[in-house]
Simulated assay, not measured.
Amino acid sequence: MEYGLFGLLILALDLYAIYQTLTSPASTAAKIVWTLAILLLPVVGLIAWLIFGPRGAARTV
């Protein structure tokens, strides 16, 4: 049962990361690369996105 909840949590966080990536001011190529990384490597891609991913306008200052 715990693994099912963990999977749902990762899915929700991945969807959030993909949404944030697609609505960011990053270039189209960067959006494609980040989206593919998150889709192909859900846990590693999410962690990489949290650390290195494109930031919104509010975070760039």
Rank of each mutant, 00 (worst) to 15 (best):
G53W: 01
I32L: 15
V33C: 04
T60E: 15
A17K: 05
L41T: 12
K31M: 06
G4P: 05
L9K: 08
I18V: 12
I51K: 05
P25G: 10
L22T: 02
V61M: 12
D14C: 15
G45S: 05
W49S: 00
P42C: 03
L11W: 01
E2L: 12
L11T: 11
G4C: 10
L22A: 03
A29G: 04
I18N: 00
I51V: 13
S24C: 03
L9S: 13
P42I: 01
A17H: 11
A12I: 08
W34G: 00
S27Y: 03
A26C: 15
V61S: 10
D14S: 13
L39K: 06
V33M: 04
G56A: 06
L5N: 07
A48T: 10
I18H: 00
V33N: 01
Y16V: 11
Q20M: 09
T28I: 07
I47L: 14
I32C: 10
L46I: 02
I47Q: 03
L9G: 04
E2K: 11
T35Y: 02
L8H: 11
L46D: 08
L39Q: 06
A48L: 14
L22W: 09
L8K: 15
Q20F: 11
G53L: 01
L9P: 01
L15R: 11
M1A: 11
L15T: 05
Y3D: 13
L11V: 03
L15H: 07
E2W: 12
I32Y: 07
T21L: 02
A48E: 07
L15W: 08
V44R: 07
A17N: 06
A12G: 11
K31E: 05
I47C: 06
F52L: 13
Y3F: 14
L50H: 06
A26R: 11
I32D: 08
G4Y: 12
A12S: 12
T35W: 08
G56Y: 11
K31D: 02
I51F: 13
L39M: 15
T35F: 07
S27R: 06
R59Q: 12
A12W: 05
I32A: 14
F6T: 09
M1C: 04
D14N: 15
K31G: 01
K31F: 11
G53F: 00
W49E: 00
I18R: 00
F52A: 12
A17T: 03
A57N: 12
T35K: 03
L9Y: 10
I47S: 07
P42K: 02
S27M: 00
A57Q: 14
A58D: 14
I38D: 00
Y16T: 04
P54A: 03
T23A: 02
Y16S: 07
F6R: 08
F6H: 06
E2P: 01
L41M: 09
K31H: 08
P42G: 04
A57L: 14
G45H: 06
L9A: 14
L9C: 10
V61A: 10
T60G: 04
G4W: 07
A12F: 09
A57F: 13
R55Q: 15
S27K: 09
